[in-house]
Design a protein around this nucleic acid. Sequence first.
DNA 1: CGAGTCGTTGAACGGAATCAATCGTCGTGG
DNA 2: CCACGACGATTGATTCCGTTCAACGACTCG
Lengths: 189, 189
Amino acid sequence: MIIGHLPHLLTPKTLQFQKGGWVFTQGDAVNRIYYVVRGRIKLVRNTEQGVPIIIHIAYAGEGLAEASLFSDQYHCSAQVDANTEVISFSKGELLDYLYQNPDAMMDLIKQLTHQVRDLRMLNEIKSIYHAKDRILACLSAQTPISGLSLKDIAQKIGMTHETLYRTLRILENENKITRQDGKLALVNQ
Amino acid sequence: MIIGHLPHLLTPKTLQFQKGGWVFTQGDAVNRIYYVVRGRIKLVRNTEQGVPIIIHIAYAGEGLAEASLFSDQYHCSAQVDANTEVISFSKGELLDYLYQNPDAMMDLIKQLTHQVRDLRMLNEIKSIYHAKDRILACLSAQTPISGLSLKDIAQKIGMTHETLYRTLRILENENKITRQDGKLALVNQ
DNA sequence: CGAGTCGTTGAACGGAATCAATCGTCGTGG
DNA sequence: CCACGACGATTGATTCCGTTCAACGACTCG
């Protein structure tokens, strides 16, 4: 994560939010850049047609709308979905610091390229129609799901939690996967 | 795209591929970084379980596995899915150039953050169950689909082309969308 | 001219969503 | 401390709709 590499002079601020709160709302001026430390945050965009659409659900370790580093206003709202802790940095300070530290920039590029890779993979996993195959692909691909509840995993791979529970049960009975205290693992055939 | 900002001294190479050809294969040493100029390339990973999984399908304008900038071997294979033109740069030269040009790095960061945003949004769109809603969300969200065939769009938003055709017809009849020479557009209610 | 691909429509099936109910746990406040 | 509410995990029954398989016309490219 970006956080580990940032010097303290960047005046990070830690904030606690309760479910339902707003970290920022669409149209707000972008002054600070946020990262989720604990909890879960929903990014929602109000479209011109009036129908709000979910853009992303951010979990611990993720940044909120990093693209806002380069825009003046947030293009979406960030609604807290569970009790959550976020850390924030001044956008200006962050940009200045990056610009003067090639190593930090390169590091950020590295993180972003890995994020892109993971997201692309997740996208393809979501294209798999059958729940069984999707779950197996998710496990084969080492999609980062550690620390997530089953419900969150279901959300992440695009199926209802009911279907995830049922299909895990089937895969377990078929000896394709194992479950020990919530951790899923493939059985190497 | 990154390409526009790169100086000619980076010795770009342009290559043509026919369907079925391989740009690189899993395990190859990463010497060059590729971008799709025209056509379509499938990224495939062979998992330890032996089942190959599709990681991504790259269209014109996209980079292939930018994450490989920071690794020694490709972690997937790139198979040409249609007659395709790619441009490539030396990995070493590219890294050196970036490292010495903060503006170029910042520019790359900007592109990557936007890519991340787009991918996150696409991910959420794919979580929408009903075909109608998914298509409408895709159009509302201004997902970049221009230039893609309907078949490619179907692939991108995770449904079969048959379903896309049928649902577009329904949405057209319901006056929710319009189609003029293949271009889709929302009807502003 | 033929192969390949895209766009399109039809019919049938299967499986994932949906709604609903239960149980256990954890945190919170009275 | 206990009651209550919130939430995760789980299972059941039903409905619906997206996939699948199949077929066809139009078009392009070699």
